[in-house]
């Protein structure tokens, strides 16, 4: 059986090519009909696939459309309104809300606060995180425990963490006040002074976030081939030289990854701390906090809040796009 079928298929191309030079295929293999049949089968299969796909993924896609994409579109519309939350009427004001956010003193203040908070939070958690990662990279007993402990604040409730640090920062009975007192330093007017407040929420955010940076840095450090460091040691390169000439260049991809994720996180994850420690945003109204304060806080300007939300979305979109375009491709070692 096998041998027979083999010979027929082998002899066929020669036969057809000799007898019918123009139509090189048998009528039942006519390209157009074959194509149509394949399309029909494909359509049947793909419509069956579609219904299965929607059964599996449909609910999630629907939820994402309803509670993430629809709000994005609605925000675009709301952002053109002068509208108080709960009011039945709203006036269209064009791009006035955007203009206000980019030019008014209160809008520029939000940019200033966001800039300082982001810079402080990102640099603070990355530098401290790297230092801790370098320490944890030594092979000493107990470092797994230390790694776990350092990471733990990252998974804790922002509300709980903020309450704990309010007690520590309290200018009358806080632990920090007693420590500063010992050192002969007057405690700043936490909760009252806007600049002190900004510093305070940065410190708390860094405390909560540095473990994340430490663990990611640690993974980066452990991927550095040890023979490189060993040969550098043999060449009498000191620890500082080794760090700047070998470790840091090889860590560049990790540094860029953390830089981008930390900028995004610091813009979006800090709400709990800000809202609990400084409920009215006294000096701490970063862009996310301002979105909340303008619509649900004391101001009740929903249209303006929506405009800020749109700006935040596009800011994050651009940061992510830049990361995908440049960082992933250009910063690449090995």
């Amino acid at each position: 059986m096998r041998g027979k079928s083999l010979t027929t298929t082998e002899s066929r191309p020669a036969h057809t090519a000799r007898d019918r030079p123009e139509a090189s295929v048998a009528p039942e293999q006519d390209p157009a009909r074959l194509e149509a049949a394949r399309k029909k089968a494909h359509r049947r299969r793909s419509s069956k696939n579609w219904s299965l796909f929607l059964l599996f993924a449909g609910p999630n896609i629907l939820l994402i459309l309803a509670f993430i994409y629809y709000p994005l579109a609605m925000n675009l519309y709301f952002s053109t309104l002068d509208w108080r939350l709960g009011a039945p009427r709203a006036d269209s004001v064009g791009l006035a809300n955007y203009q206000r956010f980019f030019t008014s003193p209160s809008g520029l203040e939000v940019w200033r606060v966001t800039g300082i908070f982001t810079a402080g939070a990102v640099l603070g958690s990355m530098i401290l995180g790297l230092l801790i990662a370098l320490v944890l990279n030594k092979k000493i007993p107990g470092r797994t425990f230390a790694r776990t402990a350092v990471f733990s604040p990252y998974v804790l409730s922002g509300v709980g963490v903020a309450l704990v640090w309010m007690f520590i920062f309290d200018p009358q009975r806080g632990a920090l006040m007693f420590i500063l007192d010992r050192l002969g330093i007057d405690s700043p007017q936490w909760f009252l002074d806007p600049d002190a407040n900004l510093l305070m929420v940065i410190v708390v955010y860094v405390w909560k976030n540095l473990g994340y940076c430490a663990v990611v840095f640690l993974a980066g450090l452990q991927s550095i081939p040890s023979d490189l460091l060993e040969s550098a040691t043999i060449d009498r390169a000191g620890p500082i030289r080794r760090f700047f000439s070998i470790v840091l260049p090889l860590l560049t991809p990790t540094v860029f990854f953390l830089l981008v994720t930390n900028i995004i996180f610091s813009m979006t994850n800090a709400f709990d701390i800000l809202r609990v420690m400084t409920p009215t945003g006294n000096g701490t109204n970063t862009i996310i906090f301002e979105i909340y304060l303008q619509s649900f806080g004391q101001f009740n300007r929903a249209g303006y809040s929506a405009a800020i939300a749109v700006v935040l979305f596009f800011t994050l979109f651009i940061i992510t796009a830049v990361q995908l375009r440049f960082v992933e491709r250009k910063v690449h070692y090995q």
Binding site: I64, F67, I68, Y69, Y70, P71, L72, M74, N75, F78, L85, I264, M267, T268, F271, I288, I291, Y292, S295, F296, A302, S305, A306, A309, V310, L312, F313, L316, F317, T320
Partner: peptide
């Protein structure tokens, strides 16, 4: 969607 923080969709939701 992964990129959209809850603050952005809060008001319409």
């Amino acid at each position: 969607a992964l990129m959209v923080p809850p603050e952005v969709s809060m008001l319409p939701n």
